[in-house]
């Protein structure tokens, strides 16, 4: 299935470190995943597990204090593979990729635009940067994209300022700005978290239809499991800077293997459950990624942990068949047992 297609992006052993006075902060400690053209990969995890830093590392827009290690192999439109981490974050090459080949949309649309300039001019900036220098043509292209994302009265809206737009409208505009150059990949960092539910649904539908039309890959970052189910083909679960489980949406939801994933699925409120039932939550909180020792990050909170193994040795990722992978000692042992018994 996916073996025949080449992934549009391959993240290998990505690490992001921040040097602080107290020691080394390692919010991302060896992340691997790939995304294939046209598919949506969901990146799921609690706040503080390193999702945003991972996604920003792809475009090289992390804060100056962060250093990235590993490889991010991107297949550009000429089918050439480029390691994005090797590019100068202020240089021309990565800027040619940003907005044109890989775009990103953010969580809060209200602050994503500069209040000093009109929405139209800010969208148009992307067009002028990457597509054409002709002002008239660029404006037409930008207007077209604005209409495509469903902004009513696009001509009038083009000359209006961000403070004259509602939240939902702004998110549409943000999507327009990200997609106006028809990128091959979109990174959506919690795009609907700040919106109310009805708007959420609209935006998600819009994203899906645009994806179909433009044929682009989406890295969808969220902590909202309901959205994941709707939007994503495959899901990667992240905990404390590492991917602990990857699989299709079905596999993850129906057959979670990693104790953490199990816990996550259990904590989703199910329609039909009784009001009196308490919401399940995983014991403990995500520890701080400071001066971490080797061993599974989930050790403290895991009900299935193996003493002496899980707290000493980093779990390696094993393939459970097809697209389902997991990084867990317990799962590994269970899989070995199966293999033996088969």
């Amino acid at each position: 299935m996916s073996e025949t297609k080449q992934p549009i992006i391959q993240v290998k052993n990505l690490g992001v470190n921040i040097k602080m006075d107290e020691g080394l902060l390692t919010p991302v400690r060896g992340v691997d995943f790939e995304i294939y053209p046209g598919e949506t990969l969901g990146l799921v995890g609690e706040s503080g597990c390193g999702k945003s830093l991972t996604s920003k590392a792809i475009l090289g827009i992390n804060d100056k204090k962060c250093t990235s290690t590993g490889e991010i192999l991107f297949r550009d439109e000429t089918d050439k593979v480029v390691d994005l981490l090797k590019l100068n974050p202020r240089g021309k090459e990565i800027r040619a990729i940003r907005g044109k080949q890989i775009s990103m949309i953010f969580q809060e649309p209200m602050v994503a635009f500069s209040p000093m300039y009109t929405i139209g001019s800010q969208i148009n900036e992307a067009t002028l940067l990457h597509i054409t220098r002709d002002k008239k043509k660029a404006r037409e292209i930008s207007l077209e994209m604005m209409k495509m994302v469903g902004i009513a009265n696009a001509e009038k809206r083009y000359d209006q300022y961000p403070h004259e737009f509602s939240g939902g409208m702004l998110q549409r505009a943000l999507i327009a700005m990200a997609l106006v150059c028809r990128p091959r990949m979109l990174i959506a960092d919690e795009p609907t978290t700040a919106l109310d539910v009805t708007i959420q649904a609209q935006i998600l539908e819009l994203m899906q239809s645009l994806q179909k039309e433009l044929g682009m890959a989406i890295l969808f970052i969220t902590h909202d499991l309901g959205t994941v189910a709707k939007m994503c083909d495959r899901v990667a679960v992240m905990y404390l800077g590492k991917i602990v489980e990857t699989g299709t949406a079905r596999e993850i939801y129906k057959n979670p293997q990693h104790p953490y994933t199990k816990g996550l699925m259990g904590s989703v409120h199910k329609i039909g459950s009784l009001k009196a039932d308490r919401l399940f939550s995983i014991e403990g909180t995500v520890p701080l990624a400071l001066n971490l020792q080797p061993g599974c990050g989930f050790y403290e909170r895991c009900g299935d942990r193996i003493e002496g193994v899980c707290n000493k040795i980093d779990p390696e990722t094993i393939n459970l068949g097809g697209t389902h992978c997991v990084a867990c000692h317990r799962c590994k042992r269970a899989a070995e047992k199966e293999a033996v018994t088969e």
Partner: peptide, 15 residues
């Protein structure tokens, strides 16, 4: 420190 600079950078604007 504002979000819109991050956005602009993600768009491909120069420093």
């Amino acid at each position: 420190a504002r979000q819109y600079t991050l956005c602009a950078r993600a768009k491909g604007c120069s420093e």
